[in-house]
């Protein structure tokens, strides 16, 4: 079902439909995360992936319009690249450990320690929270830095544009030059 939604995304050309389908896709993957025991990830995906992302995409679509142009040529080269990459991935996949096996190497480095000791060391029953906020706290701080940088970036990009529009093209900022080029012959 997830794969079907993904392929639908690739085929559809009305971008509103695509964005709504992307929301459905996100919600489906949240359901799949629940099945895979990752409840924290599931509700983050449902809130952030299906919620905030969709709203952001819709807001952007309002500004840029929702029709996608028909591709001018048949996409043969991308298809070849994708098939070759997929084949390489499939080849690499053969060596990966079996699905769901408790003896996989992933489960025996620090995961045992987290599961056994985090109750005493941190005192939070949800192990994911304990690891996120304490053992890997620096990761979360880095994440906050990334989000902060992103917010600053968005504000710079859109805030400066609004200023350029207010002062008009004669202000001669770098941003209005491509517009002048477009208006030319």
């Amino acid at each position: 079902m997830l794969a079907a939604a993904g392929i639908g995304l690739a085929k559809l050309r009305n971008l509103f439909t695509v964005v709504m389908l992307a929301g459905v896709y996100s919600l489906l993957s949240a359901g799949l995360f629940t099945v895979m025991d990752a409840v924290d990830v599931a509700f983050t995906e449902a809130a952030v992936g299906a919620g905030i992302s969709t709203v952001l995409f819709l807001a952007a679509l309002v500004l840029v319009g929702h029709r996608e142009k028909k591709p001018v040529r048949a996409p043969v080269l991308p298809l070849v690249v994708v098939i070759v990459t997929g084949a390489a991935l499939a080849w690499g996949m053969i060596d990966l450990p079996p699905f769901g096996d408790p003896d996989n190497p992933v489960h025996h480095h620090v995961a045992d320690h987290y599961l056994q000791e985090s109750g005493h060391e941190i005192g939070v029953p949800n192990v994911v929270t304990a690891v996120l906020a304490s053992y890997r706290g620096y990761d979360t701080m880095g994440e906050a830095t990334v989000v902060f940088t992103a917010v600053v970036g968005v504000l710079l990009l859109l805030g400066r544009g609004a200023q350029g529009r207010r002062t008009g093209p004669e202000a001669g900022t770098g941003l209005s030059e491509p517009e002048a080029g477009e208006g030319g012959p």
Binding site: D40, R136, D139, L157
Partner: peptide, 27 residues
Amino acid sequence: PLPHVLILTAIVVGVATTSVGLALAVR
């Protein structure tokens, strides 16, 4: 629990980068 933690971080970072990409598209 470890992959869950990593992916929680990755989802939030992914939305942040998506929003920057959309802002660029609008510009």
